[in-house]
Computed example of a mutant assay.
Amino acid sequence: MSKLYTKQDIKEAAKAIKEGKLVAFPTETVYGLGADATNVQAVNQVFEAKGRPSDNPLIVHVADIKTVEELAEINKNAYNLMKRFWPGPLTIILPIKPGSLDKVVTGGLTTAAFRNPDNKETIDLIKAAGVPLVGPSANTSGKPSPTKPEHVLHDLDGKIAGVLDDGETRIGVESTVIDVSTKIPAILRPGAVTVEQIESVIGEIQTDHHKVGKNETPKAPGMKYKHYAPNAQVYIVGSDEWLKVKEWILKHPDQQFGIMAPDKLQSDFEQSNVSYFGMGNSIQDASHRLFDGLRLLDGNNKIKIIFAPEFVKIGLGIAYMNRLEKSAGKQYLVDLVD
């Protein structure tokens, strides 16, 4: 059994980290699976516990900029971004100093991803451990990311020392990843820090989300392998398509369905073969609840189809749709009903 650490147990959790064990930690985005980034054996356990491909690089979580200075070459763009957005949901890819991090952390690349999370308990944990922590999402690889301690335990109980409990995360989708090791900085994964916010600090950036080839090592998580997918098939539903969903469900009374939709639509789906999960009334609500809803509905083995709402790809909507499209394999309602 993995332990549920409280805020009062941070020293105990840090001791486990120092001993080479794995401890999941909270951030403002999702829960991360922490291990000493300087301990190769501990980092290898992260890949084993998650079932994660070994060429998928890990984000290094730090308590301060000084730690990054010891490990990487920081350019002007990176310093400006750190000053503006750290601590916060922005991961920055930088060239590392020779020998500073093992290839198991970087995926064999000469760059590494760094983040200073906006969570006091985790910052205290990093400081108490005295080492930076690798921190991929604390879930089985490919499944929806964990936004609650119970999500972590569902996937990893018995495989890790424990989870530092800070309740539900605030944002619900992983950090924005920007590569500033290239001539023109590029967004590799959208998140809560938007393109517009970044460009207001460092000027124009690339936003075309580079597609990783079969034999290419990704520079950031979430670029190459299947992510965020429940066992049920997810279909994306436009704001004007919920009547079609209701009609489809009425035609299939012997099937069980999961509905993730705005709160205001719940009264439209009170059929006995529907499990409803309210997504709130805004893109902020929907992003916060996306992974929780996917996990909750997927816990019902009778549900084979989950319907989830589309949002316009603007601001946080870009990050939300990035995760939802990967969860759904880019399957929209039209792929089911037409």
Rank of each mutant, 00 (worst) to 15 (best):
L333C: 13
V60C: 07
S282Y: 03
V62K: 04
P132N: 04
R170F: 08
G167N: 12
I305C: 02
V60R: 04
E204L: 14
K214C: 02
G222R: 00
G99R: 09
T122F: 05
F25E: 02
S145D: 04
T140R: 12
E150N: 14
D9P: 00
V180C: 12
V43H: 05
A112I: 11
E325W: 01
S200K: 07
D208A: 10
V40S: 14
F25I: 07
T217V: 15
V312G: 00
A49H: 04
Y332N: 12
F85T: 13
A16I: 04
S54K: 13
V274A: 13
L188W: 03
V152D: 11
K76W: 11
D166E: 14
N281R: 08
D240C: 00
D9H: 02
L33F: 06
E270H: 10
L125E: 01
L316F: 05
L333S: 10
I205K: 01
D124K: 13
V274S: 05
I202Y: 10
F307C: 07
E70C: 09
A49P: 04
L265Y: 09
Y31N: 08
S239L: 07
V334D: 15
K15Y: 07
D165S: 10
N56G: 11
F307P: 00
R189Y: 01
T106I: 14
I178N: 09
I283K: 13
A186L: 13
K302L: 14
D335K: 05
K76R: 14
D165G: 10
G258Y: 00
T91H: 09
E270S: 11
R323Q: 01
T207I: 12
Q8K: 14
A328H: 03
M1E: 12
V134S: 06
H209T: 11
N231V: 11
K50A: 12
V62Q: 07
F25M: 09
G34D: 05
